[in-house]
Design a protein around this nucleic acid. Structure first.
Lengths: 136, 136
DNA sequence: TGTTAAATGTTATGACATTACATATCGTTG
DNA sequence: CAACGATATGTAATGTCATAACATTTAACA
């Protein structure tokens, strides 16, 4: 668990950019934020992101084509993780639910499917934003 | 449940293209397959896809940016649906699992999140393809 | 039939991601 | 240390996915 090679310069920079952000970032936004560090091309970002995902330090949110730093500092396994994404404020909640995990595992075994990556994303409005919109 | 306006010409053509396909199609692939019917621009496809998704007749697979016809002919609600996507043969299994649904609903209520759309996709190898690769 | 909403056609552009190839860095081993 | 291979980087070009903006047509219906 939780072990990965030391990060290279590019990987560290990309991870720091995601850590500093208060929400998910697109690869091109990361690129823009790292221009001053010498970043020039999308590939520099995508390559770093690939490795960081491999290490479990970053997650890709498929439904919005964006990336977030893993919320659980020292738990970089590859378990099943779910995300709640607020369409209004952009805030993302990362959570891991045993019950969801078991239910999906059950289907997977029953169908002899060999899972490689599982995506669970709930888009909607977070508690705070939902409250605001229903007052309108 | 299961009621929607009559489909327009473009909507019917796009749905038929997806029905004929034996797996998910990208919007541009659909466009290519409908050239002979007079399709010229991506927007014609995307507009039809938007409506078809609204009607529950088509699903978008976020993790592969592709579209499939709904597998359950007469059940076009907007329940929580999960997909198992084979990376090898492209086959997609659509399923609805009560337990998964309840587990996620529990998290959602506990966190007062207002869900709009839920994405559940398992990428990997289907039983048939898994068998082949492990023999190698 | 005139009016309005929905759907369509078309061009251009924006947003996301990868291929291909050259160069550099670093650890290993002879 | 030098030669090698593996990994990381730099850069340009291109490929793929999706939408904005605007003109026109069709359909619903008072």
């Amino acid at each position: 668990m939780s072990t990965h090679p030391a990060l290279t310069r590019n990987q560290s920079l990309v991870l720091k950019a995601l850590d500093r952000a208060d929400g998910p970032l697109s690869a091109y936004t990361i690129l823009d934020r790292l221009r001053d560090e010498g970043f020039r091309a999308p590939l520099q970002v995508y390559r770093a992101l690939d490795k960081l995902q491999e290490f479990g330090l970053v997650h890709r949110l498929e439904s919005i084509s964006a990336f977030v730093a893993c919320a659980r500092p020292d738990c970089h396994g590859h378990e099943m993780i779910a995300f709640a994404i607020c369409q209004t404020c952009g805030r993302v909640d990362e959570f891991s639910d045993e019950a969801v995990q078991e239910s999906l595992s059950a289907w997977v075994s029953a169908n002899r499917f060999m899972p490689a990556k599982t995506t669970i994303e709930i888009s909607g409005n977070c508690a705070a934003c939902a409250e605001l919109t229903e007052k309108a």
